[in-house]
Amino acid sequence: MLLIACPYCGPRALAEFTFERPLESIVPLDAAPEEAMRRLYTRDNPRGLSWELWRHAYGCRAWLKLNRDTATHEIAETALYGGGA
C-alpha cells in the first residue's frame, strides 16, 4: 500500500488514488494520428524511475504527476500536473 504525498493533502494511502497512465502516453488533441497511436501503444516499460499521471480520485481529486520507480515503488517526486492551480 503505497504512501503518496498529495501536494494538497499530504501523505495518503494508495487506495485514495487512481493510476491513470504513463505521462508520455498522454495524447495531445492536436497530435497527428501516427504520433497519437505511437504514444498510446508503443511504449517503453522501464525498470526504474518513470513519470506517471495519477489522480487523487477519492481525496481532493487533483491530477498529479509522480516519478515512481517501477521496481522498488520508491516515489522520487510528486507534483501537481500542470504545475498547480
Binding site: 487512481t18 498522454i26 495531445p28 488533441l29 499521471l53 489522480r55 481529486r61 491530477w63 500542470g82
Partner: peptide, 13 residues
Amino acid sequence: VAYLSYVRKVLAP
C-alpha cells in the same frame, strides 16, 4: 467523471 476531469485538466486546461 474521470474523463471530463481529464479533458478539463490535462488535455485542454
